[in-house]
């Protein structure tokens, strides 16, 4: 460790020993107390934010506010150790496909190679972007450094593939509209009517339909009939119908969130995961 002596290693070792001792203690606790231990730590996890909110903060801060970056950092650091769960799960699946030569094993190779390449060149791009990774071969190609490789994988691959996937939605929105907008029931009809009004109101040929209604009268005053311009009807729909409906939904959603949070925090939740004997 640069800048730290042997004493620092001692501290690190001490930290590890203490933490493992605590975990060993928990592991040694009687089986039936495990549920209580979990409930306790769950409660503790939520307590910080709850207390920070409810404790009076006359100047906008209380004694807990300053620890927010620490708590967030701790959560992020510990949480990011879990990335292994994901990586193992995926890599294992593809290694298994590969070792048993199941159909499509070639694609597993492609996935694993892209994964390793991105990880390696991504990290090299952080630490030694100018390191040569592909040497020049006279007449065939120029040498390539780590940054170049990363740019190839990121700008050429990842970001274009992301945009392409996003743009697929354009096709799907068309086929979904064609299929779903049928005058089948009152509900389907309402869905269709609103969608068509808003669509027509938002493109030129639509606004052209009612462009004859001038916003101003000849005397310069406001024309009341201008409210019937298609884009104004669309806007009215979005503001006066959509907004209150959204608000009604929001009420239920937020209360649902509050109630569910309370059940998790106080370990009142039920269901397979929560009912299991440990």
């Amino acid at each position: 460790m640069p800048g730290h002596g042997a004493a620092y290693f001692g501290k690190l070792a001490f930290g590890l020993v203490v933490m493992f001792a605590i975990l060993a203690g928990l592991q040694a606790a009687p089986r039936r107390s495990r549920k209580i231990i979990i409930a306790f730590f769950t409660f503790l996890g939520g307590l910080y934010f709850a207390l920070e909110f409810f404790y009076p903060a006359p100047s906008g801060e209380n004694f807990l506010t300053g620890y927010q970056p620490l708590v967030a950092g701790l959560g992020a650091v510990i949480g990011s150790f879990a990335i292994g769960l994901g990586v193992f799960s995926l890599v294992q699946l593809h290694l298994r496909t590969l070792s048993r030569l199941r159909p499509g094993w070639g694609y597993s190779i492609v996935l694993l190679v892209s994964f390793v390449a991105m990880t390696v060149f991504g990290l090299m791009n952080e630490y030694s972007p100018n390191a040569t990774v592909i040497p020049t071969v006279g007449g065939l190609w120029q040498s390539q450094n780590a940054h170049g490789m990363f740019r190839f994988l990121f700008s050429g691959g990842l970001s274009n593939l992301g945009s392409a996937t996003f743009s697929i939605i354009a096709f799907y929105i068309a086929s979904a509209a064609y299929r779903a907008f049928r005058l089948r029931s009152i509900e389907a009809t309402l869905l269709m009517a609103a969608a068509l009004i808003v669509m027509v109101g938002s493109v030129s040929f639509g606004t052209a339909l009612t462009a004859g209604i001038h916003p101003k009268l000849t005397d310069g005053s406001e024309n009341p009939w201008a409210n019937l311009r298609i884009e104004n009807i669309a806007q009215w729909l979005l503001m006066e119908v959509n907004t209150p409906a959204q608000r009604g939904i929001l009420f239920g959603l937020t209360l649902g969130l509050l109630a569910t949070s309370l059940r998790y925090w106080l370990s009142l939740e039920r269901g397979a995961y929560f009912d299991k004997e440990l």
């Binding site: 990335i83 994901g86 990586v87 995926l90 499509g104 694609y107 597993s108 492609v110 996935l111 694993l112 190679v113 892209s114 994964f115 390793v116 390449a117 991105m118 990880t119 390696v120 991504g122 990290l123 952080e126 994988l153 990121f154 691959g157 990842l158 593939l161 992301g162 996937t165």
Partner: peptide, 17 residues
């Protein structure tokens, strides 16, 4: 399928990075 797997591999590597 080829590019789907390339995409997944790149994205996973990028996550890790």
């Amino acid at each position: 399928r080829l590019f789907e797997h390339i995409f997944l591999g790149l994205a996973l590597g990028y996550d890790l990075e």
